[in-house]
């Protein structure tokens, strides 16, 4: 999971607009939800912008990763 957990969310929506790749959306409770984890580029902007520091991120990607050599 790239964005692992969101807890302590106050529903301000900052992370939603801050995410360059549109990974996070507000759910029907008005809380931030990791909606499109496969598009997360693990850049941590959401975490750094979150006023309540509610977002925890781990470095793994949810889909296979293609690199130039391996």
């Amino acid at each position: 999971m790239p964005i692992n957990n969101i807890s302590g969310c106050i529903g301000c929506g900052t992370c939603v607009s801050t995410c360059p790749t549109d990974v996070i959306r507000l759910n029907k409770d008005g809380k931030a939800e990791i909606k499109y984890p496969e598009d997360c580029q693990i850049c941590h902007l959401c975490r750094m912008y979150c006023p309540t520091d509610a977002i925890t991120i781990t470095p793994e990607k949810t889909i296979p990763v293609i690199v130039s050599w391996g």
Binding site: Q41, I42, C43, I57, P59, E60, K61, V67, G70
Partner: peptide, 19 residues
């Protein structure tokens, strides 16, 4: 280049630079 461990993790790959 990127890192072989968790290559997709931009933040981790760039050390503390984003901060």
């Amino acid at each position: 280049p990127g890192r072989s461990i968790n290559p997709a993790a931009c933040y981790d790959g760039w050390g503390d630079m984003f901060e």
